[in-house]
């Protein structure tokens, strides 16, 4: 495998010398490289990597990037077993995981966790205490917060979700869980679909997923925006990571370098995440 890589890199070098295009574009991070870069893991990273793959393929057809899902745990296992070059996670890898597979995590973005309600819901702002009341099930009617006389329908994520972990830590307190009867959905897209169709709904989802079908509410007066998340004014934020086993190989480091360029950062931003550089 490694021999192939070296041979491929050498062939790439030849192409580099043959290349006529000499402008210093951001995509040049991949210049002269060739081969296959496989990325797998949590689903949040898929659109970003897909965009990178597309740009790279246009600039340098010798590099092929594949992207796959399955969940953060699968990503770690795949990169640990060497099935892929990069395992992506919507959480920091645990100390045990880092030790077992000699992982090198690379945080490439921040994702704000927005609290959203149905667009017809008049509630605009909630305090963290009010949110805790809602998600623990202590308050169960929107009337309490100036909304319609309508039961509150809780939408939450599963215990393995990094989005949930961050939300619970920052709102309910570590070790707590949302009310037992909350509907648990499996993804950011699914929670958005659910909230968009339920007048009594409230749930939390990655900031990048928020669109006109749901209404994000401000928390303690701070609107969930990329700026507020970056400055720290908006409190609920998680990190998105790429992990390699050992130091990243040539393609993976080119991938990282590209993400750090202006073009890379704007790709990350285009998908609603905040570049973490």
């Amino acid at each position: 495998m490694n021999k192939h890589r070296i041979a491929a890199a050498f062939a790439g070098l030849v192409t580099l010398f043959a290349a006529t295009h000499a402008g210093a574009a951001d995509i040049d991070a991949f210049k002269g490289l060739s081969g296959k870069l496989d990325v797998a893991g949590g689903t949040a990273h898929i659109p970003v990597v897909q965009d990178v793959a597309r740009h790279v393929a246009k600039a340098n057809p010798n590099v092929r990037i594949s992207v796959s899902g399955g969940g953060s745990g699968v990503g770690i296992q795949k990169v640990g077993a060497g099935l892929v070059d990069i395992g992506s996670t919507g959480r920091a890898p645990s100390a045990e995981e880092v030790a077992k597979y000699n992982l090198k995590p690379f945080q490439f973005a921040l994702d704000g966790v927005a609290v959203a309600v149905h667009p017809a819901n008049p509630v605009k702002n909630l305090s963290r205490v009010q949110l805790a009341d809602i998600f623990s099930g202590r308050v169960d009617n929107w009337k309490t917060f100036g909304g319609a006389d309508q039961r509150i329908h809780l939408y939450s994520r599963d215990e393995a979700s990094a989005t949930r972990e961050v939300f619970v830590d920052k709102v309910l307190g570590k070790g707590q869980s949302p009310a037992a009867n909350a509907t648990v959905v499996a993804s950011n897209g699914a929670i958005k679909t659910a909230i968009a169709r339920d007048k009594g709904a409230i749930g939390y989802l990655g900031l990048g997923y928020v669109d006109a079908s749901v209404k994000p509410v401000a928390i303690d007066g701070h609107a969930p925006s990329q700026e507020n998340a970056k400055s720290g004014a908006y409190p609920i934020v998680r990190g998105l990571y790429f992990n390699t086993r050992g130091e990243p190989n040539a393609l993976a480091s080119a991938f990282y370098r590209y993400l750090k360029t202006g073009e890379g950062q704007s790709l990350i931003r285009a998908h609603g995440y905040i570049p973490a550089f």
């Binding site: 689903t43 898929i46 679909t193 997923y209 079908s213 998908h271």
Partner: peptide, 20 residues
């Protein structure tokens, strides 16, 4: 090689879509 598949595309989009 790895491959793409329609049902997988549907699932990923259902869980990750950004717009209509």
């Amino acid at each position: 090689d790895p491959f793409e598949a329609l049902p997988f595309f549907i699932m990923v989009t259902a869980s990750e879509y950004r717009d209509e």
